[in-house]
């Protein structure tokens, strides 16, 4: 099962380090990362494999949101199916 982790907000140091450390600790394997910076705005999208994750996706998603609050970014973790459904015919 794969999930999409999206991190957005004002660019600062160590965002990738903190998010990937958190995911590694939860047993989530990052398969792909893409990142852009537009002015001061930072947007990163990760595709993550969560089949060996230590927690359910809904719990991980909540924890991601909390981590986001802590580091001043907006972080979402969502099942990839939502994007496949909405953006593919």
């Amino acid at each position: 099962m794969r999930a999409v982790v999206t991190v957005t907000g004002k660019d600062k140091k160590g965002i990738i380090a903190q998010v990937s450390a958190f995911l590694a600790e939860k047993g989530v394997n990052i398969e792909d990362i893409s990142q852009t910076i537009l002015g001061e705005y930072f947007a990163m999208i990760m595709i993550a494999d969560i089949k060996d994750a230590k927690e359910e996706l809904s719990v991980l998603a909540q924890e991601c949101a909390q981590l986001g609050k802590k580091i001043g970014m907006s972080i979402y973790m969502q099942h990839e199916d939502i994007f496949n459904a909405m953006h593919n015919v």
């Binding site: 999208i45 994007f83 496949n84 953006h87 593919n88």
Partner: peptide, 16 residues
């Protein structure tokens, strides 16, 4: 497969 913009669009739909 979906693109980066698709992901950001969905999130904007929910957030804003």
């Amino acid at each position: 497969m979906f693109s980066k913009n698709d992901v950001l669009e969905t999130i904007a739909m929910v957030e804003k």
